[in-house]
């Protein structure tokens, strides 16, 4: 089982830039991109078939036909995606959208465009770590992309063998 990060962004250069900035995670974490919401659900389907786990969604807000916030709300209704951490990466969400994202989608973090690479990677590391500790996953396969000090308590409980 690999952890997966899903990037939902309609503009190709932005999507590619995000994926490139997360290249450091790619040998441990499965980084997937989607250009619209149907595409994103397709990715969810593929992850499920492969036995991988959607851990984090980085969504743009303004998308053709729908909104990133709408997608984040939808995620809560599907057992495959309900536990994923949710981050908006946007420059265009107004106050109403943001309030809805926080109250109804359980938004975990907001990154304003243009993003800073170090900030982005720190947020991803932090959110993945939260996901692992919250659901008490085995941290060892993912340790290199996690905040290792924070997952050490999970390891304490294992005991010798």
């Amino acid at each position: 089982m690999r952890l997966s990060v899903l990037i939902l962004e309609d503009e190709r250069p932005v999507r590619e830039a995000l994926a490139r900035d997360l290249a450091g995670f790619a040998d441990v974490v499965r980084v997937e991109v989607a250009e619209d919401v149907p595409d994103a659900w397709q990715v969810v389907e593929e992850l499920d078939v492969d036995g991988d786990r959607l851990a984090l969604v980085l969504a743009d807000h303004r998308l053709p036909g729908t909104s990133g916030v709408e997608f984040l709300v939808q995620l809560l209704d599907d057992p495959r995606t309900a536990r994923a951490r949710k981050v908006l990466v946007t420059g265009q969400a107004d106050q109403q959208d943001t309030i809805r994202a926080v109250n109804e989608a359980g938004l975990d973090h907001y990154i304003a465009k243009p993003w800073d690479v170090d900030e982005l990677t720190e947020v991803v590391r932090d959110q993945l770590t939260e996901h692992v500790t919250e659901h008490r996953l085995d941290p060892l396969p993912h340790l290199r992309v996690l905040d290792a000090a924070r997952v050490m308590p999970l390891l304490r409980e294992r005991g010798d063998r």
Partner: peptide, 16 residues
Amino acid sequence: VSNTATTATMFAVVLP
């Protein structure tokens, strides 16, 4: 303390 728990404690110290 168990070897595993000791390792977890000490790695938390050593990681920085």
